[in-house]
Amino acid sequence: MKKIGHQDPLWVKAIIHALLITACLITIYPILRIMTISLRPGDRLMSTSLAIIPPDATFLNYKAALFEKDFLLWLWNSLVITLATAVIGLSLASTSAYAISRWKFPGRNAMLIFLLGTQMIPAAMLMVPLYLLAAKFGLINTYRGLVIAYSVSAVPFSIWILKGYYDSIPTTLEEAAMIDGASRMYTFWKIILPLTTPALAIAFLFNFMNSWNEFMLARIMLPKAGMFTWPLGLQSLQGQFTTQWGVYAASSMMISVPVVALFLYSSKWLVNGLTAGSVKG
């Protein structure tokens, strides 16, 4: 992209910054409120104060989450499942997307419509049949069922993203390599995949977020306290009537920080990875 010669006059700049700052405040304030609650001492969680750092701030809730609850165990379980499934999901999607991008085979359009269709199934519709299926194969109370389910569940969207990105890579690259005698899969592995890094990063991120945040399926598939993933753990802090809001907020903060960091780190690819395929202008 070329640098555009002229810049906005000062008053336009001022308005733009004012608008952006307002938008940022609206965006970040609710998140800061979680932090505020996590810092309040346990006996006064409800307050009409709007101060972001409460005057009597304390880290007791963080201490409670870390040392009195199985917080680290929940996080560990989630992390193991999530990383494994994100890697599997990515390998499944990247190969399929490549085939769909490069070959016009019979049934290709039907496949694309099918992928789109998978996004339309109401989640509530899947719960009971998936549980029955898992029970049939003895996958209840194990991580196996979840690993299989999560591995595939973000595949449609990943294929979508990756296919768009492959489309934007000219086929001449592969053709040249193949004239030199390289096999198709070697070219894919050595030439195409490295070029796809932004889209791969995005697909990985989607797979990651998808399993990291999943709650409904985990609830019925993991009926054992020691096996909880973090969403189940957080849920256990909520009682029928009373919730340990302080500990809840502290845990939420600690869970969000690494994910947000990962997200922001990969956001440099986010902008290109999501749209590359669709823009040809």
Binding site: K3, H6, H17, A23, T27, I31, S252, V259, V260, S267
Partner: peptide, 24 residues
């Protein structure tokens, strides 16, 4: 906008709701 200052900071903040776990 061309030559916008703090673009990355703004973008990082504005993206946060997407990055936060939805249940939270």
């Amino acid at each position: 906008r061309p030559g916008l200052k703090f673009k990355n900071v703004y973008r990082a903040i504005l993206i946060l709701p997407w990055a936060m776990p939805q249940v939270i």
